[in-house]
Simulated scan of single mutants.
Amino acid sequence: MRIFIVHAHPEPKSFNGALTRTAQEALSASGHEVVVSDLYAMGFNPVSDRRNFTTTLDVNFYRQQAEEANAAVHDGFAPDIQVEMDKLFRCDVLILQFPLWWFGLPAILKGWVDRVFASGGRIYGGGKWYDRGVFAGKRAMCSVTIGGPPPIYSSRGLNGPIAEILFPINHGMLYFVGFTVIEPFLVHAPARIGDDERRIFLDRYRERVLSLAHAPTIAYPKLAEFDDMHVLKST
């Protein structure tokens, strides 16, 4: 398989860094092709604006989706975006590796999604979304470190269920463009656990990445289950 890891942590010696290195080593040793975009090391620009494009549709008023559609037709995406798109199209599995910051993605990773997941048919649009999306048949997974312990992210916890917190990412980003979404790999409070427990998590992650082809996935509704107004049909 071809695995594409988008890594978003500023410190190479972090536990996020250890998770990515574990995945690289395990997958490569098993004969898989691994490509990593280390966003901080790359100095990736997360700001989405006219610099996304080498083409221009309207010089007087910036409409991002219109410019994306125009760029899709005229191969007008900036080189840094096109390179990331090429990695997406080549991979069989996408892994987003990140720490949970303010109940969401770090800004650099959110900006990567904003810039790379372009509309106008390149990544989505024209009826290409959810199970009919461009990346239907590919898999994606979030590998996430979380500052607090599991109980606070439960249905009775103060922060609420972690599945609900990750829903905008798993459903609204990954499934939206067609990926089959693998259950996330979660590590709670890595800074508060000892070396032995961290090694256990790394061993578990090694097992997870080596089973990406058949790892459990999140069941989301299909487009055929909704009517023309995108409301769930009566059963």
Rank of each mutant, 00 (worst) to 15 (best):
T54G: 01
Q65Y: 12
I95D: 03
E11F: 04
Y130K: 05
G148Q: 10
L57V: 07
F167Y: 14
G133V: 05
I152R: 11
L212H: 05
G76S: 07
D58K: 09
H7Y: 14
K233W: 05
Y220T: 00
M141S: 05
P216Q: 11
V47T: 13
R199I: 04
S154P: 09
L96T: 01
F15K: 09
R132T: 09
H230P: 00
V35K: 14
R192G: 13
L232F: 11
M141G: 01
P149W: 01
V93W: 06
S48M: 12
Y205D: 11
D80T: 07
T145G: 02
G127F: 02
S30Y: 03
F89S: 07
Q97V: 00
G17I: 06
I200L: 12
F77N: 10
P161C: 10
G121W: 10
P161K: 08
V34F: 03
F98W: 06
V134C: 02
R132W: 01
A26D: 01
L57W: 11
D227T: 06
L94A: 01
R204V: 00
F176Y: 15
L105S: 03
C142P: 00
E164R: 13
F98A: 03
A215T: 00
I152M: 14
H188R: 02
M141D: 02
L105C: 08
L39C: 06
G125V: 05
L174W: 08
E225N: 05
V181E: 08
A29V: 01
R63V: 13
V144H: 02
P168M: 11
L232Q: 13
S119F: 10
D58S: 12
T22W: 06
V36T: 05
L39F: 03
G121N: 12
S37A: 15
N52A: 09
V35A: 13
L27A: 11
P184S: 11
I108W: 07
R2V: 01
E11P: 00
G157W: 09
D75F: 05
L100K: 11
V209W: 09
E197K: 14
L158I: 13
N16P: 04
V209I: 13
A215Q: 04
A163Q: 14
F89C: 06
A72Y: 07
A29S: 15
E11A: 12
T20L: 01
G178P: 03
R2W: 08
I162Q: 07
A29T: 12
